[in-house]
Design a protein around this nucleic acid. Structure first.
Length: 505
RNA sequence: GGCCCGUUCGUCUAGGGGUUAGGACGCGUCCCUUUCACGGACGAAACACGGGUUCGAUUCCCGUACGGGCUACCA
């Protein structure tokens, strides 16, 4: 029988969760959803020195905002595998138990080397031009550990409370093969793997031990994580093997990384000229907060859609997906192997697609508070009409202001380029006649304005419409002009024309 | 440096031994429009390179180049 699908997202609370992490969480979520399985949030807080206040809460809120909440784990309800925080699980003695097992079977050993001694070893090896200075089958023979030290001395050290770590005893030359759902078979020689620390001198496990113990204990079926873990996967295989748990090992899937749009490398929060966090993140160690996608005006559905298509695709030309659709379609076999550069421009386009799906009423409702902040309040009908007209110009709700503020504020300047090109000696007289004619319009709506203007041009000859736009709104572009003038209203439109004609020569 | 992973338009990608190499973002042209957009049509734009294998490689294999990751008592 197939194992029940149980996947976990296991971040460490060392900072705000960035978009790469969110995508890892998303793929886990989609996979669990598709297979009717469980999605778990586990907090990997084994490094006490890197703990950041507020990070855990941030992770929880970010997942919630994205709509990809786990159904088990920290912040989402305890299942039968609680606790879900590794620092708490450590108190159970669970990691030590597994480490001891490895010691007993001879696949791990105690190491008493101080940080200084380790540093010396690295320097020595570098001086000797060794390609990769590492604690391994060869170098461990020169270090202070339970392999090189006499048995009674090891006992004495242990009993005397000496500081020690437990290291994995990696064989000198052995081929390690493992299968990755995304990458297929990967082969590495154990000579490339170092004797990883399993249990640190403070009693905490390292990631390598902790995640394996937890994945086993929590009956995780698939371990989905970023590509940065690929190099340590062989060590993990060995640990499962030496624990006799190879059969229960979760299947592995290493996701490609999300890369910087320009330049190289993974996305860095400092350099990015676009949001990298889902929600704004204030790092207690830094002065300025980082703006999140939410605050930048992205819809969570759009954000998730963008992420889903970064490294995965359904094999057809569809680009807009609801979460449910994604969950139905998702499979690791269709995840790319290569890293994907993030394109902020396309991200905006995605948001625009979602914005256009909103009703004018919804948009009006979201924009109203922003407008109020600018000091303007209009009734609902006005707002709905405004949004209906301006929505074609915006990608974000907050852009309604930038794109349509002239509706609320009379222009104080006029587009120079358009003026330079089109304003001439006859213009003033022509627009005086427009003013006079508009004064007599009794039914002030787009249709009558259009007809009135058209009749006038039949009488007077061509009157440039873009000039009318500039005179009444100040800018050279915007939604359909007569619709806008209808919205602006008769009195205000006439005032603006009067003012423009008194300003321009 | 060593090891691992990767490489189709500028970017995200589809495809896969014989295709006019498809789509999307962005860009350009045109149509619609007395304005501005939306929309529509069209266009420029890619199989990193060199060797194999093969009747035939962008597709399979090997090298090279380039890119990325890892190389901690961090995850």
């Amino acid at each position: 029988m197939e194992k029940r699908v149980r996947v976990r997202f296991a971040p460490s609370p060392t900072g705000g969760l960035h978009m790469g992490g969110v995508r890892t969480a998303l793929f886990n979520y989609l996979f669990a959803k598709k297979h009717g399985g469980d999605f778990i949030l586990r907090i990997e807080d084994t490094d006490q020195t890197r703990f950041v206040e507020g990070a855990e809460e941030y992770i929880i809120n970010a997942l919630k905002w994205c709509g990809i909440a786990p159904n088990e784990g920290v912040g989402f309800g305890n299942g039968q595998y609680a606790p879900y925080r590794q620092s708490e699980r450590k108190e159970l003695g669970i990691y030590k138990k597994y480490a001891d097992k490895l010691i007993e079977s001879g696949h791990a050993y105690y190491a008493f080397d101080t940080p200084e001694e380790l540093e010396d070893m690295r320097k020595r090896l570098e001086a000797a031009k060794m390609s990769a200075p590492q604690y391994n089958a060869v170098t461990r023979q020169t270090m202070r550990n339970s392999i090189t030290l006499p048995e009674d001395e090891v006992k004495k050290l242990l009993d005397g409370g000496a500081k020690y770590v437990i290291r994995l005893k990696v064989p000198r030359n052995e081929e390690i093969r493992f299968h990755d759902i995304i990458r297929g078979w990967v082969v590495v020689n154990s000579s490339q793997v170092d004797d990883k620390v399993l249990l640190k001198s403070d009693g905490m496990p390292t990631y390598h031990l902790a995640h394996i113990v937890d994945d086993i204990e929590m009956k995780i079926s698939h371990a989905v994580r970023g590509e940065e873990w690929l190099p340590s996967a062989p060590a993990h295989i060995l640990i499962y093997r030496y624990l006799g748990l190879e059969d229960e090992m979760p299947q592995l899937a290493h996701l490609p990384l999300i890369l910087n749009p320009d330049g190289n490398g993974k996305i860095s929060k400092r350099e990015a000229r676009f949001p990298v966090f889902p929600l704004s993140w204030k790092d207690p160690r830094e002065a300025a907060p980082y703006t999140g996608y939410k605050e930048a005006g992205y819809y969570p559905e759009a954000f998730v859609n963008i992420l889903a298509l970064l490294g995965w695709n359904p094999g057809n030309n569809q680009e807009i997906f609801s979460l449910d659709e994604l969950a139905n379609l998702f499979e690791f076999e269709r995840v790319n192997k290569s890293g994907a550069k993030f394109d902020p421009e396309k991200a905006k386009w995605f948001n625009q697609q979602y914005l256009r799906k909103k009703s004018d009423e919804e948009l009006a409702e979201s924009f109203a508070p922003m407008l109020k902040e600018k000091g303007f309040e209009k009734n609902k009908a006005f707002m709905v009409e405004f949004c209906k007209l301006v929505k074609e110009k915006v990608q974000f709700v907050h852009e309604f202001w930038e794109q349509g503020k002239y509706v609320f504020i009379a222009p104080t300047s006029y587009d120079e380029k358009v003026l330079a090109k089109k304003w001439n000696a006859q213009s003033k007289e022509l627009f005086f006649s427009v003013l006079e004619t508009f004064k007599n319009v009794s039914t002030w709506n787009a249709q009558t304005l259009h007809d009135t203007f058209e009749n006038l041009t039949k009488e007077k000859g061509k009157i440039d419409m873009q000039l009318l736009r500039v005179l009444t709104t100040g800018v050279g572009g915007g939604p359909h002009l007569f619709d806008m003038l209808a919205l602006i209203g008769k009195e205000e439109t006439l005032n603006r024309l009067v003012k423009a004609l008194s300003t321009l020569n």
